[in-house]
């Protein structure tokens, strides 16, 4: 079953000659992203760790975005999603994304509400 592989990443910015070469290229990229994440996690730069955006530290948003970037390249290049039909791609990717975003949004809002109840309600917990 010889497959055709799409050998471009970053929307055609980087082109590889063979599938094997592309795999190593993606590995280098993923390693780089992980290294940046670990460095940020240890260094915690002030402008990211102290500032908030939409109720969360900017640093955490950076981590989540970098994670999604890594997830994209693992799925697209290691799992060969890039070479599948768009119908399969959409069925597999958008179904979980929709459900997870929905669930996470509801749960986090509810958790934030419970947090305020614990903080401001007549409830002793720190004894």
């Amino acid at each position: 079953m010889a497959h055709e592989h799409k050998l471009e990443i970053f929307r055609g910015l980087v082109k590889f000659k063979s599938n094997v070469q592309k795999i190593w290229g993606v590995l280098i990229f993923l390693t780089l992203v992980t290294a940046v994440e670990v460095w940020l996690g240890i260094a915690k730069p002030e402008f990211l760790a102290k500032e908030y955006f939409l109720g969360m530290k900017r640093l955490n948003w950076v981590f989540i975005i970098l994670t999604l970037v890594k997830a994209y390249y693992i799925t697209w290049d290691f799992m060969h999603m890039r070479d599948e039909k768009s119908s399969l791609r959409r069925a597999v990717v958008w179904t979980p994304i929709f459900l997870v975003v929905y669930l996470v949004a509801i749960l986090l809002m509810e958790a934030d509400y419970i947090y305020t109840v614990f903080k401001e309600g007549f409830l002793a917990w720190n004894f």
Partner: peptide
């Protein structure tokens, strides 16, 4: 989806505390 459920529950407890 199973793993997402676990991680969402983790996020829930974390935001709570």
């Amino acid at each position: 989806l199973t793993f997402s459920g676990f991680l969402a529950a983790y996020g829930f407890s974390r935001f709570k505390f």
